[in-house]
């Protein structure tokens, strides 16, 4: 553990990946593939043109989707 991430660098990460393609995974296994349009300090997220997936199965598409932050396991930028 040489470089402990500061809170500044995590929030830089979050602002750096806005408007880029991300995968958001939720605690219950749902995954959302889409473009991150905004995010706040609670990890509340808005995705554009997202696809809802469970495993490799596509469930739905959303033009714009709000995800409540407490359910978010991770956000991966693609």
């Amino acid at each position: 553990m040489s470089a402990v991430p500061t809170s500044a660098s995590t929030s830089n990460f979050l602002s750096d990946i806005t408007n880029s393609s991300v995968i958001v995974k939720l605690n219950n296994g749902f995954e959302y593939h889409g473009v991150l349009s905004s995010i706040d300090g609670f990890m509340n997220i808005v995705l554009e043109n997202s696809i809802e997936m469970v495993g490799s199965k596509e469930i739905r598409k959303y033009n714009e989707l709000f995800v409540r932050g407490n359910n978010v396991m991770y956000i991966a930028s693609q």
Binding site: R60, E64, R68, N71
Partner: peptide, 18 residues
């Protein structure tokens, strides 16, 4: 109650693919 909410979307903008 908010703690049971997972996600919210405009109902007119949802496409079912499956």
């Amino acid at each position: 109650r908010g703690d049971s909410v997972m996600s919210i979307a405009d109902a007119s903008n949802i496409g079912k693919t499956n």
